[in-house]
Simulated assay, not measured.
Amino acid sequence: MLFAHDTECSLTAAAALVNTGGSDGEGLPDVAALDEFYVAHAYTGRHEHTEAELASVRALRPRLRRLWDADIDEVVRIVNGLLRENDALPQLITHDDEPYHFHAVPRDAPLAIRMAVEAAMAVADLVRNGETSRLRTCAHPDCDNVLVDLSKNRSRRFCEAGCGNRAAVTAYRARKAASRG
């Protein structure tokens, strides 16, 4: 394992959250979609199931998106800002049969705050380990989704929206056309 389990989960959830606001339309169109996102990414603690909560989670996306586009100094400014603004105080805890891991805000903090702080803590791990290059944009020319390359050999190029398959099909068709012509 390259990073702690909670770091990997937080990075994956942050990328997924950013991608819900991509050019393909609104990925969190309603509270029910946020409920599904909450469950899919194993969030715990307070979840209000309200339009206000949904709006605050959506408002977080552009700030997290900047982490993928920024240079290291800007990444550090964003991370420190998120931690400072949300009064993050890292502590080791265990819950729900999970091993000890960091939480930096209480479990009853608003969901958007917990998402922001968990993402900031995870990106802080990348910064400390000199691994911010693992924050990438999908290599498919028609996609602007982000991804986190957690592979050992740093080879992941495509997001989880099927872009790798589309690229493979395009390459296959180009090879077939070249062999015919």
Rank of each mutant, 00 (worst) to 15 (best):
F3G: 01
H5V: 06
D6E: 09
D6Y: 14
E8T: 10
S10V: 04
L11V: 07
A15Y: 03
L17V: 12
N19P: 08
D24K: 00
E26Q: 15
G27Y: 07
L28C: 03
L34Y: 08
D35K: 10
D35W: 02
F37I: 02
A40P: 04
A40L: 13
A42Q: 13
G45S: 02
E48I: 01
A52P: 02
L54F: 05
L54C: 05
S56T: 13
R61S: 08
P62Q: 12
R63D: 05
L64S: 14
R66W: 01
D71G: 11
V79P: 02
N80E: 03
L82Y: 02
L83G: 14
R84E: 09
E85I: 02
D87F: 08
A88Y: 11
L89P: 00
Q91H: 07
I93P: 01
T94I: 00
Y100E: 13
F102H: 13
D108G: 10
A109T: 05
A112D: 14
A116V: 07
V117S: 03
E118L: 04
M121T: 11
A122S: 05
A124S: 13
L126I: 09
G130C: 12
E131T: 00
P141D: 14
D142Y: 03
N145G: 00
V146C: 13
L150M: 13
N153P: 00
R154C: 01
E160T: 11
E160N: 12
A161M: 14
G164V: 08
N165T: 15
N165I: 15
R166V: 11
A167G: 15
A168W: 11
V169G: 03
T170F: 02
A171H: 15
Y172C: 01
A174I: 10
A178N: 02
S179N: 10
S179H: 13
